[in-house]
């Protein structure tokens, strides 16, 4: 039988179902592709793990005795305080991978194949961000184990702790859409690697992640308190029961209602940056 010349087989592709169902299915197909790639290039995942582990160890032992939280310079108090910050930093730094990966994809012939297929428009990007989410979740699991080894504990029960991790992952997912937009906007994968990273330093340091924000200059303190990143850190700290006794919670609304603030910020970022990214993807190379 002729596989390619058979007239009876000469048919268009099945009609697309369209809508959310097709979009979800196509995204999962692309996510699977990205996960297979991750499994076959494990270096990327492994380096992605080493960095946050280094942060945990360095911050715990280098800064641990010098930073006062809630009036105490006890290193073990700082470690409890620190971990939510490191977790949040880890999920956001993973977005640099999304920038680089998408920029890399956009410069390969495969993207023309995707764009010529009757697939959901956002699926290439959604598939990538979903795969990154899986990688981030794995990283968090390993990191949490390391954190427990250096003395970190949860104090509010497992359900609240899981809710804390869920908020962290949601933040990571939101940030990977920012990473996607960066990856689509730069001309080379190299530019995406640095472009995907530099903005994360001020974002994560002008926050409550590593030190309490109340000693910062007024302008920085204001930024730190409204920083979407701070909201998630604060929410995770609260849900893990890691807020030190006597730690003054700033009066800014996001710090008073960190769980809500974290949710709102993440959803707003996802909606905004997904819309921008998909639009950019559609017009890319046009």
């Amino acid at each position: 039988m002729s596989v390619i010349g058979n007239t009876a087989l000469r048919t268009a592709a099945p009609r697309a179902r369209g809508g959310v169902v097709q979009s979800a299915r196509d995204s999962l197909v692309v996510a699977k592709r990205n996960l297979i790639r991750m499994a076959r290039i494990p270096e990327v995942v492994i380096f992605g793990l080493i960095q946050p582990i280094m942060f945990v160890v360095l911050f715990s032992y280098v800064f641990g005795g010098s930073i006062a939280v809630g009036g105490s310079t006890d290193p073990s108090t700082y470690r409890q305080f620190l971990m939510a910050g490191i977790f949040a930093q880890t999920v956001t730094f993973a977005t640099a991978g999304a920038s680089a990966g998408i920029a890399d994809d956009m410069h390969k012939g495969l993207i023309d194949r995707f764009r010529s297929l009757p697939m959901a428009r956002g699926a290439v990007l959604t598939g990538r961000t979903l795969a990154d989410l899986v990688q981030t979740a794995l990283t968090l699991v390993v990191l949490a184990i390391v954190a427990v080894i250096v003395g970190w504990r949860i104090h509010e029960g497992i359900l609240k702790a899981l809710a804390g991790f869920a908020l962290l992952l949601l933040l990571g997912y939101a940030f990977s859409w920012i990473g996607a937009l960066i990856g689509l906007s730069v001309r080379t994968p190299e530019a995406a690697t640095s472009g995907g990273l530099i903005w994360l330093f001020p974002l994560t340091f002008i926050s409550n992640a590593f030190v309490p924000s109340d000693n910062m200059p007024t302008a920085l303190r204001y930024i730190a308190e409204w920083n979407p990143f701070s909201a998630t850190v604060q929410a995770a700290r609260q849900l893990f029961g890691n807020l030190p006794v006597g730690y003054p919670v700033p009066s800014a609304w996001p710090m008073q209602h960190p769980v809500w603030a974290s949710l709102i910020w993440s959803v707003v970022i996802i909606v905004a940056f997904r819309t921008l990214s998909v639009r950019k993807y559609r017009s890319a190379t046009a």
């Binding site: 097709q22 196509d26 197909v29």
Partner: peptide, 10 residues
Amino acid sequence: RMVGQLYQMS
């Protein structure tokens, strides 16, 4: 298989 599924085949 990926391309087939993205062509909306089962």
